[in-house]
Amino acid sequence: MSLTKKFLKSKPICKVTFTVPAAEASTVVVAGDFNDWDTTASLKKLKNGSFKGTFDIPTEQSYEFRYVIDGEWTNEQEADRLQWNAYAAAENSVLEL
């Protein structure tokens, strides 16, 4: 799993690309604060078996998020940090922008 950040000079926006290698999966979703934990925001499956999607996210904030791979919630290993979430009783990945 990986994520890349591209900060725009003209706007307070960062283009964040999420890439998840999951050739055996049928769906991969990224859900987080930046999209109201929308579990229908599926990433696109590429020919190499990975899933990829880019989101325009406002800067100067931090966002909790997780992946949902075929219904199973998982964290991003390359996240800026992890944070405990009492509501979910689990750690969430954190994206610092």
Rank of each mutant, 00 (worst) to 15 (best):
M1Y: 13
K5P: 05
K5M: 13
K5Y: 12
K6I: 03
L8K: 13
L8Q: 06
L8S: 11
K9V: 01
K9H: 02
S10D: 13
K11N: 10
P12A: 09
P12V: 03
I13P: 06
I13C: 02
C14E: 09
K15M: 08
V16N: 00
T17L: 01
F18W: 12
V20H: 04
V20G: 00
P21E: 07
P21F: 10
A23G: 14
E24C: 06
A25I: 07
A25S: 14
S26L: 11
T27G: 09
V28D: 07
V30S: 11
A31W: 02
A31S: 12
G32A: 08
G32I: 06
G32S: 04
D33E: 00
N35R: 08
D36E: 10
W37T: 00
T39I: 04
T39S: 00
T40I: 07
T40F: 08
A41H: 10
S42G: 07
L43W: 07
K44A: 13
K44Y: 04
K45L: 13
L46G: 07
K47E: 12
N48F: 07
N48S: 14
N48H: 10
G53E: 06
T54N: 04
D56N: 15
Q61A: 09
Q61T: 10
Q61W: 07
S62P: 01
S62E: 15
S62I: 04
F65I: 00
R66K: 08
I69C: 05
G71L: 03
E72G: 04
W73L: 10
T74K: 03
T74W: 00
N75C: 13
N75A: 11
E76Q: 10
E78P: 01
A79S: 15
D80H: 11
R81D: 01
R81N: 07
L82N: 06
Q83C: 05
N85T: 05
N85C: 07
A86C: 05
Y87G: 00
Y87H: 05
A89C: 07
A89W: 08
A89Y: 03
E91C: 11
E91Y: 15
N92F: 14
S93C: 03
S93T: 05
S93W: 00
S93Q: 02
S93G: 04
S93P: 01
V94E: 02
L95D: 03
E96P: 06
L97I: 09
